[in-house]
Amino acid sequence: MRPILLQGHERSLTQIKYNRDGDLLFSCSKDQVINVWYTHNGERLGTYDGHNGTVWTVDVDSESRFMISGAADNTLRLWNVATGKCLYTWEFPTAVKRVAFSEDDKQVVCITEQRMGYQCAIRVFNINRSGEGTKQSKEPAHMFNPIGSKATVCAFTSQPGIIFTGHESGKVSLFNFKTGEEVDNNERAHGDVVTDLQMSPDKSYCITSSKDKSARIHDTKTLDVIKTFTTETPLNSAALAANKPYVLLGGGQEAMNVTTTSTRQGKFETRFWHKVFEEEVGRVKGHFGPINTIAVHPKGLSYASGGEDGFVRVHHFDDSYFKTQPYGDLQIED
């Protein structure tokens, strides 16, 4: 495996994302900038300057035309991917923790933090894709406050008008964003904060990671837990490997506890688990701090991890990864 070290950030990574073609990788960090990289050689294509606070989250549309980002400066920004220009800025009372594009790129969902007397809010904006993209409506199309524990992660589902959320208490829910009604929930999906949520290509299932040291695959319709992957370290991110029956888990000791354990304890590794057998398959070392975010190439050719140490590592899989069948010739559906 050929790791490419992307050294463009000065502080810890918060989220990384491949575009749909897999040729670009977007990364955002606490150093307030967003970078975009060529995935095949790790060359930096450019940066998106403008945020005045930790950029918590980023997402890119399927055409790689628009990018959306949310930051601790209480703004949500829409960018032109090609030019790096900020097209539109929305302002909120609190920080934006999570954004996501809908499947048809016409909508964006964002979660704002619960702070300073403001409740955690989920807003859905309609994106005007005509022209330059600078003419956006200021007001959200839908907005509601989830009752109970605050939401930490969210994504659109395949059902129209329904979003999937993960919460601080470990709960996962389905919300109808038009009415703000909680359609369904699973209170005991996790025992601690849900830290990441990534959808399968057809959005029929998703993987969540949590500080309760486990990652789980859920059916996005019934919210049933399909698979559970239990590790010995708090998890910050979980991703589904495309075209291979694996899941990738990353995490590590909390930053405050890092000094009390040695790196050789192997807590800062990306763990590969078999999606169906719930067995650990292998680990990839490299980071010297906890892994904050993992993303997999949409065609499964490579994966990237971003760590608390400020580095992004892009790993292109070797031929042997595609050829070997460590579990025999069992046909496993995607």
Binding site: D202, S204, Y205, D219, K221, I226, K275, V276, F277, L330, Q331, I332, E333, D334
Partner: peptide, 13 residues
Amino acid sequence: LVDEWNAWRARSK
């Protein structure tokens, strides 16, 4: 396990 998974996938698809 694989059979269960595949059956579930087929159903949801």
